[in-house]
């Protein structure tokens, strides 16, 4: 029975996220259009609402070009991994507050629930970069792809560390790796008020970990054509986008659970609060895209290793000290 429920949940989550990815592209084009005084997609359907479906159909019928010198098995593996691991991370994200049924049972709105949710999500996020890494290697010596992957590797190694260290502060305060427990610990006041520095570091690191503007160096269009995706076409390239958008959803949900109190909030019901927070983070991504210029590669590394990492270590020391002597942490 449990297995059946898990399979049904899995199918629903994958379907919902696929539709979400399609409409995330529409939403992003629309918002960025209005930010740049354009109107964005308008022709296909009402306000361009059918545009994502048209785009998806188009990518199915595109010719699948594989370079002669490509490493064939890895060339197939790369987009598959790039799309699989973000979905694997997303199955641990709750889509709604847990339901307390009669008889002490709890129904979780995530496919996979364990005591170590955060570690699982972090692990899958770390692995998600392998799709991009292999893409560069498999492209048969294409310099653009290779440079893109190289950048992704360096970026992931630096910012995963910052991400984990920033998450450590709320974990220390909640005494748990369980997402429900962390939300429970924020009943009275959200952790963002206790841990403003950790929150800022987490937001910076989550943008870098998903490789979006202003840290989208692996696919910097003016320098690298399309970075790691240069040699991929049609559905294969679509899978990379899939992975990226699902990843954006995962980190947004993680940020709103860990720092903004998940489904706690005044007046409105929990579900509404939760989705307002997630959608706000997704809007923030688009907003940054329309606002910031891209950082240079050495600046990116400097931010991670010379600013964020030492600051986060100090922050953890302070949090630990304050918790040990019973101060309110700030």
């Amino acid at each position: 029975m449990e297995v059946l429920i898990a399979i049904i949940k899995l199918i629903i989550v994958v379907t919902v996220l696929s539709v979400y990815v399609m409409y995330a592209t529409w939403y992003e084009r629309k918002v960025i259009g209005h930010m740049q005084q354009r109107i964005g997609p308008k022709r296909v359907g009402w306000h361009g609402l059918l545009q994502p479906i048209a785009d998806t159909l188009k990518s199915f019928w595109k010719e699948d070009v594989i370079p002669d010198k490509a490493d064939k098995p890895l060339f197939w593996l790369a987009p598959a991994l790039a799309a699989t691991f973000p979905f694997a991370a997303a199955i641990a994200i709750p889509f709604a507050p847990p339901l307390h049924l009669a008889g002490g049972k709890v129904f979780y709105f995530s496919v996979f629930h364990s005591k170590i949710d955060i570690l699982y999500i972090l692990g899958m996020m770390g692995l998600a970069s392998f799709g991009v890494l292999i893409a560069g290697v498999a492209s048969g010596g294409s310099k653009y792809s290779f440079t893109g992957s190289q950048r992704e590797a360096a970026q992931v190694v630096s910012y995963e560390a910052v991400l984990a260290l920033a998450l450590l502060n709320p974990i220390l305060m909640a005494h748990s790796l369980n997402l429900e427990k962390i939300v429970e610990a924020q009943r009275h006041l959200w952790f963002v008020f206790y841990q403003p520095f950790a929150f800022v570091a987490f937001v910076i690191a989550m943008i870098a970990a998903t490789a979006r503007v202003p840290f989208d160096l692996p696919e910097a269009e003016p320098e690298l054509v399309a970075g790691h995706m240069t040699e991929f076409s049609g559905l294969k390239m679509g899978l990379f986008f899939f992975g990226q958008y699902v990843m954006i959803f995962v980190v947004s949900a993680l940020a709103s659970i860990v720092f903004l109190g998940g489904w706690t909030g005044p007046v409105l019901p929990g579900l509404v609060w939760y989705w307002i927070k997630i959608l706000a983070f997704i809007f923030m991504y688009t907003w940054f895209w329309g606002t910031f210029p891209r950082y240079r590669y050495d600046q990116l590394m400097d931010i991670a290793w010379k600013a964020l990492l030492p600051l986060m270590v100090l922050n953890i020391l302070w949090t630990g000290f304050a918790l040990a002597v019973g101060l309110p942490v700030l």
Binding site: L122, G123, M124, G126, G136, Q150, A153, V157, E160, A161
Partner: peptide
Amino acid sequence: AQFNAMLQIIVYAGAIAVMIMLVMMI
């Protein structure tokens, strides 16, 4: 030992293997 399992994935597969890939790329 779920904690060890996740550390295995985060540290070895997520960080060290990426490091090895990075060194080979450079």
